[in-house]
């Protein structure tokens, strides 16, 4: 079987894979960063005392979690132009990933925050600490420990989800595999390489996750 497997072709197309890998990496990083902001804001809205804000946040979170990402991508890709908003595919893709991951991150952060027993919050209130002081000194330090592992899980999911951007012709990793396949009919080589590169990103994030967990546990004791 190996004799049919053309490493030479892979090497020949290395700049295509490089571009794909770089784009996947950049798109993921930027989307993740924006999703963190979106997630924290959505979570704050979800937990706020103001009903309207809570409603908006719940509507956002639930509508994202109940629909396929691909549909969300198409929705933005075909929907935004009809609203007169024209942005390049990459940006559309980043927006979609941000909104999607943001909803999941909002729930992860909320789980972290609500994991802190209410009694401690009452103890904080009783000693006169303000809302922000309670967040900063009591809730967030404890929420962090339970939040970081699922957040990294979400980061890994986001990287894999970014493959769907190939459907709106963003040249990320999966798309580069498709392009090789259509130029030379070598799907095995193409997607073997693509898969391998996703694996590399995956292990990088896993390593990061293990490292941060060690750091966090260290901080706690």
């Amino acid at each position: 079987m190996l004799e049919f497997f053309s490493f030479r072709t892979i090497w020949e197309y290395r700049s295509l894979f490089q571009e794909g890998l770089r784009n996947t990496f950049l798109i993921s990083i930027v989307s993740l960063f924006l999703a963190l902001i979106a997630g924290v804001l959505a979570c704050a809205a979800r937990l706020s005392g103001w009903r309207g804000l809570r409603g908006v946040s719940i509507a956002y979170i639930e509508s994202i979690r109940s629909t396929p990402l691909l549909v969300q991508i198409y929705f933005l890709y075909f929907g935004l132009p009809t609203l007169g908003i024209r942005i390049p595919e990459i940006q559309t893709g980043i927006l979609a990933l941000m909104l999607n991951s943001g909803a999941y991150i909002a729930e992860i952060v909320r789980a972290g925050i609500t994991s802190v027993p209410g009694g401690q919050i009452e103890a904080g209130i009783s000693s006169g600490l303000s809302y922000f002081q309670r967040m900063r000194f009591i809730i967030l330090p404890q929420a962090l420990g339970v939040t970081v592992p699922p957040l990294l899980g979400q980061a890994i999911t986001l990287v894999k989800d970014s493959a769907l951007l190939s459907m709106i012709s963003v040249v990320e990793l999966t798309r580069s595999g498709q392009m090789l396949t259509s130029e030379r009919f070598m799907p095995a080589e193409a997607f073997f390489t693509v898969a391998l590169l996703y694996l590399v990103i995956y292990f990088f994030l896993k390593y990061l996750s293990g490292w941060s967990q060690k750091k966090l546990i260290f901080r706690e004791t």
């Binding site: 009694g119 009452e122 103890a123 209130i125 009783s126 000693s127 006169g128």
Partner: peptide, 8 residues
């Protein structure tokens, strides 16, 4: 609240 201690 600063003037009142509460023990749970």
């Amino acid at each position: 609240r600063a003037e009142i201690g509460f023990v749970f």
